[in-house]
């Protein structure tokens, strides 16, 4: 109890369950994630990792339970305020989710345009972030002309550009070769070191262990099987 008060929780899940057609994808999950933590969510395919991330950014609604993010109760977020929640997250997906007919620059700038930022700021900030993920020279390229690793670096730039406090990454390295995967993870790590909370879902258990100090949450069949601290 005492420990709870001291903690600076940013994400809390209380007895969260998610059912698809009566079948549990998540079952009675309790989680307390502190600000600045690095969380690896592992587990076999179909375990519920993606679903866990989806209920956080409200792509899916929970069937039971409560979720608090930064003090906001997700059950009480109206559809008009959903965009405000989404802007607290930077998201990276296995399939990159870049807009194919927009340039690298436009893909990244979209986040700031949607947030209503001034165009001077957008120009400066987008180029700065593209430099940090080493994609500034490809700013005018279309996503499909890039390699998978490069596309994911653009996606990471897009996730970081709004300076979110939380990064959600769903198998960000799942479709990349080892070298590109490491590069992408390094960029996310760098941002984590500035104070961001990071949740990465991966079925590759060993990927992060060597590089990161953080927590590994292992889930199978929708329940948390084990929580371990990686040292």
């Amino acid at each position: 109890m005492n420990q709870d008060i001291k903690k600076n929780s940013i994400i809390r899940l209380f007895n969260v369950s998610k059912r698809y057609n009566g079948k549990f994808a998540l079952k009675d999950i309790n989680l307390d994630i502190e600000q600045g933590e690095f969380i690896q969510i592992s587990g076999p395919s179909g375990a519920g990792k993606s679903t866990l991330l989806k209920v956080l950014y409200l792509a899916e609604k929970v069937s039971e339970g409560q979720i608090l993010i930064d003090g906001m109760n997700l059950a009480r977020i109206s559809s008009s305020r959903l965009p405000l929640l989404r802007r607290r997250f930077g998201m990276v997906f296995q399939d990159f989710k870049l807009i194919p007919n927009r340039t690298v620059y436009e893909n990244v700038a979209l986040v700031l345009e949607a947030a209503g930022e001034k165009s001077d700021y957008i120009r400066k900030k987008v180029m700065q972030v593209l430099r940090t993920t080493d994609m500034d020279k490809k700013a005018k390229a279309l996503p499909l002309t890039l390699s998978g690793g490069e596309q994911q670096r653009v996606a990471v730039a897009r996730a970081l550009v709004g300076e979110p406090s939380i990064i959600l990454a769903d198998e960000p390295t799942g479709s990349l070769d080892t070298k590109s995967a490491q590069v992408v993870l390094d960029f996310i790590m760098e941002y984590h070191k500035k104070g961001a909370t990071v949740l990465i879902a991966t079925h590759n258990l060993h990927l992060l262990e060597s590089t990161v100090r953080g927590k590994n949450i292992e889930i199978t069949e929708g329940t948390i099987k084990r929580t371990a601290t990686m040292l």
Binding site: M91, K97, A115, R158
Partner: peptide, 16 residues
């Protein structure tokens, strides 16, 4: 569709 989906994910309002 992808564009709209992405816009929603990055926090664009419906108006935008």
């Amino acid at each position: 569709k992808i564009e709209v989906e992405v816009m929603r994910l990055v926090g664009a309002t419906e108006t935008f």
